[in-house]
Design a protein around this nucleic acid. Structure first.
Lengths: 340, 340
DNA sequence: TTGTATGCGTTATCAA
DNA sequence: TTGATAACGCATACAA
């Protein structure tokens, strides 16, 4: 059996309660006993038992992470390691641990979350995605359980603490960028329409076009998941139009990357035949051919802030919801070209 | 306060102990009371309190995951999401939760692990990497704490439960494959020499050469991390030799992918000017230009088996250590060419 | 088949 | 400034 608070008490010649007070560094204990007790702890290699502690404490010092469907392609996106890196940085410094929950279906994810919350495994939760009609969110909301969301909440975005980029503006900006380069036929390629990111970026794209009095052509908008087979068709279809787009706004580097391949197979060169601009600025966008012009959304910081925000929420549940917008930055590389 | 076992007991008109027995589905409780109790649980939406349960139980039903240095480039490798997907599949089905621990330095990782183990947060641990002289492993070993390792242990590999590929043979096989295509000047590109994977693959590479009476040329072996700036030089150096290699064994798709870019910049075409074969068979290798011939190491299964193995270990600590070798498979694509 | 009593390792309340 | 004692919510040995 591991060493307990009683053992320490015995060695230090005090009662367990005193040891407990030393652990929490209570000010009403003499420096002398503190030293004595600490030495005993050192000597025995004592570490407080987490289970007992959180039982008495009603706090677990752990944060739950809800990931999207693990069989989904987005799961493979380096976005997640990076955002977790940010979260973990803060968590670590605030002595919180990380508890991860995922599943193969939305049902599984939901049940996983419920168990994790109901059984008191975590003090708060970070949703690593935002989608519409998410029952995970409804549950948290109803339970009034502390949580933060990375992305823009579908509803009631003022009442829910979240960390996000201004994806609308970002998409609008890059679309304008293409317009300025002389492109008029601009396509939009993205993933699931259930995700708020997709919706926001699409809105931005459309808004830029409207501002330039260009009518939105639904043939130019593609929503396939197409890193694999399926999507290639959607893309080749897009490019086989009588008037194919001369440039594309792609909602993710990973997708953009898949496109490069598809385009290559079709004999189209980037940026000579077609320009591409994308999002996230993953390592990938740097080492691809050509290097991609991409919007850096500062993923690491997204994670950092979401953790900070959640921990504050846990400690002060009654504070009003916070919205934190992480600035983005367009990184110009060589995937866009002026239309002559 | 949430609903407890007492509430259920009251509603069902039994004592808490009876409820407890129903929870663990004890055979010595009548079907009738079981029904009665279960209905009460249902009614109240009761879920056992995790902290109390694991305190009384001395088990947490959670698995600790130790990741490598989060600032390291390998962290970005899609290997991790995929292996976690496998782990999580089993964990979920066996009612285990996942606890993740990482850090920015080896020191942090070590301390994180110690706390997680000592404070009793987890029942067992999976190391998601294997490197030489790992104090994390020494600690686990000394504590006789249940753990499994993904990769080959540096020492005492018979005494430590692990799940691995036969990386030696795999590397040997692909090197032979290149030899058979007529290549004699074959380079080897890999990451850190602290990682067992790297060492094993290198051994395989060398063994194949020796079998063909080709002397090992250290100029042909590169160990840089070179997805970013630094490494490109190492590569161009390699290719600027008087007698540059005509083909490369690259220890990871991500690296191979970075190479494609570097090579392109140098005006070298794959596979016409130089052949490349790599490992892991990530999505990436499929959508790169050209698609990469790569060794599928079945990452998902690696995760699956490691979790299975650990849970068995947790339940039967005295069983001898297991070694599980996951078969690999060479996936031929278009990055290798016969030397004419 | 069920109930009673006790313990799991802490923290917190109340005394001293 | 410290000690005794009762929670925290559940599991289990022992009784009945």
């Amino acid at each position: 059996m591991a060493v307990t608070i009683k053992d320490v008490a015995k060695v230090a010649n005090v009662t367990p309660s005193t040891v407990s007070r030393v652990i929490s560094n209570s000010p009403r204990i003499s420096e002398k006993t503190k030293r004595k007790v600490r030495q005993a702890m050192e000597e025995l290699g004592y570490l407080p038992n987490f289970k007992a502690r959180s039982l008495a404490n009603r706090s677990t010092q752990t944060i739950g992470l809800v990931m999207p469907n693990s069989t989904d392609k987005v799961f493979q996106n380096p976005f997640f390691p990076e955002v977790i890196r940010g979260i973990s940085k803060i968590a670590h410094s605030m002595e919180y641990a990380l508890h991860i929950s995922t599943g193969e279906t939305e049902e599984e994810i939901y049940e996983g979350l419920v168990r994790m919350v109901q059984s008191g495994r975590v003090d708060g939760v970070i949703l690593l995605y935002s989608r519409i009609n998410d029952n995970v969110m409804s549950f948290l909301e109803e339970k009034k359980f502390p949580y933060t969301i990375i992305g823009k909440p579908y509803l009631n975005s003022d009442g829910i603490s979240h960390v996000d980029n201004d994806n609308f503006s970002a998409a609008k900006e890059v679309t304008k960028y293409l317009l300025k380069l002389g492109h008029k036929r601009i396509g939009f390629v993205a993933g699931s329409l259930n995700l708020m990111v997709t919706l926001e970026r699409k809105r931005g794209y459309e808004s830029a076009l409207l501002d330039s009095d260009i009518t939105i052509n639904n043939d130019y908008i593609v929503h396939e998941e197409f890193l694999r087979e399926g999507g290639q068709e959607a893309i080749s279809e897009l490019l086989s139009l009588k008037e194919p787009p001369t440039s594309l706004v792609v909602a993710d580097d990973l997708m953009a990357f898949g496109m490069l391949n598809t385009l290559d197979e079709m004999g189209l060169r980037v940026p000579d035949d077609i320009s591409i601009i994308s999002f996230n600025n993953l390592l990938l966008s740097e080492v691809s051919r050509p290097p991609l012009t991409s919007v850096d959304i500062n993923i690491y910081n997204l994670g950092l802030q979401s953790a900070k925000c959640l921990i504050e929420k846990i400690k002060q549940p009654d504070e009003p919801a916070k919205r934190i917008i992480i600035p983005y930055k367009v990184i110009e590389r060589n995937s866009c070209k002026k239309l002559s």
